[in-house]
């Protein structure tokens, strides 16, 4: 497993790096509006109503953006948590921790693909 992880390292780092860069750029507005302003009633009622949200999300660019918002943070999160686990003395169980975290990111990304495809 350790060898496989080493072989996949360039791909993992690519997704991790984009998770920080593109993930952060996209998540700022997303978290602010969807996570905070809308639940607090600070955006107009129709802004995130089903018909409008679905129309925006089903556009090809909307699907791509949503896939990035789902998948890239998962890879940033998985890789940083792996790094944190190693730093806190978990080097000997790195293969197991890394496999679990990257499995979550992989399954989440694939489900993200399915989720945007069924919009």
């Amino acid at each position: 497993m350790k060898q496989l992880l080493l072989r996949l390292e360039p791909l993992i780092w690519l997704l991790f790096g984009q998770g920080i860069l593109i993930g952060t750029i996209l998540l700022t507005g997303w978290v602010l509006v969807v996570g905070l302003l809308a639940p607090l009633g600070l955006v107009s009622d129709g802004a995130l109503a089903f018909e409008r949200a679905h129309r925006l999300a089903a556009h090809p660019i909307g699907r791509l953006v949503l896939l990035a918002i789902v998948a890239l943070p998962l890879w940033k999160g998985a890789h940083h948590l792996r790094s944190l686990a190693i730093d806190f003395g978990g080097g000997h169980r790195d293969a197991a921790v890394a496999t679990l975290l990257y499995a979550i990111a992989t399954v989440g990304s694939l489900l993200g693909l399915v989720a945007v495809a069924r919009l």
Binding site: P73, G77, H79, I104
Partner: peptide, 17 residues
């Protein structure tokens, strides 16, 4: 440590989509 937050944000976004 923000990795934990990002992981949860990704999963939450998946739930919403």
């Amino acid at each position: 440590a923000t990795g934990a937050v990002y992981l949860l944000l990704g999963l939450l976004a998946l739930r919403l989509v």
